[in-house]
Design a protein around this nucleic acid. Structure first.
Lengths: 145, 145
DNA sequence: CGCATTTATTTGTAAATACAAATATAGGTT
DNA sequence: AACCTATATTTGTATTTACAAATAAATGCG
């Protein structure tokens, strides 16, 4: 293998880690964490999701998610409800406190998008996003097996 | 903010997480972890690095790295040596066992690069990598503050 | 219907991780 | 040299995380 900085997984991790660390630091004063934000953002997009669904969209392992949700529930950010149509499933709902917190995080999130993509024109940004979607899809097969 | 899958940090995390999970699973039978691989790969590229340097290149927090290195040292994969020119610093060296393990992981790593970039031509792949380097550099200011 | 299998979530538990404080050495100033 | 500040690493400690096992409900099948 050539130099590390020609290796895609390395570049991906490095960029992701840097954003994650900086973002985490910024939302901490709001009493939030990156993972809390991920759950809130997912619920903001579509409320009443199953744990498994949330696990997929947030890339948080289900057993980890369970305890994160315990915590968020205690903080009053979300509420669990049993799915009436399938009693195995839990549907997670965002509360108004959850929405308020998400609303406060939103500008930070938007700023991060802007800073990360500084110097990219619209087409370059879209090319990058498309590539990341493609890459994700490419890994689909190896996902968990 | 629009849909989640137009949000760059989301796409980045999602892609990175998927690669990381699958890769971890594959190297586990070899007695390795993703983090162990990161350290070995960094040392393979340049041996005798300081902890802080390694922390930067691997995106592993220094205090976490210390304990990871303890573990790797016990396994005989690396060796710590005090820097003769600055006794505060520790220089980490890969051992031959470490090299052998890295050698066994290498084909897996190369396969992941290939799978991730399946369907990308050389120019698309290079564009993506350049974008990730740029993005990383963009975050430089906010790094830790 | 009763039982086996699959799916959804949670719990047990050990390991990994991060933040803050502690330790150790260096370098500069007087 | 004594002292102050800066840098490098480690340690204390609480939280987060992941894997495996447990629980619970649904589905299919004899």
């Amino acid at each position: 293998m050539g130099p590390l900085d020609t290796y895609l997984p390395y570049l991906l991790n490095r960029a992701g880690a840097r954003i994650a660390t900086a973002f985490s630091e910024e939302v901490r004063p709001l009493g939030a964490t990156l993972q809390i934000w991920r759950v809130l953002a997912a619920l903001r997009e579509q409320d009443g999701r199953r744990m498994g669904d949330l696990s997929n969209t947030t890339s948080i392992e289900v057993s980890t998610l369970t305890r994160l949700v315990d915590n968020m529930e205690q903080k009053g950010l979300v509420a669990r409800r049993r799915d009436a149509e399938d009693a195995r499933a839990v549907l997670l709902h965002i509360t108004s406190a959850g929405r308020r917190l998400a609303q406060r995080i939103l500008p930070i999130a938007e700023r991060y998008e802007a800073v990360a993509l500084a110097g990219f024109n619209a087409s370059e940004a879209e090319t990058l996003k498309a590539a990341l979607r493609r890459l994700y899809a490419n890994m689909d097969g190896l996902k968990g097996s």
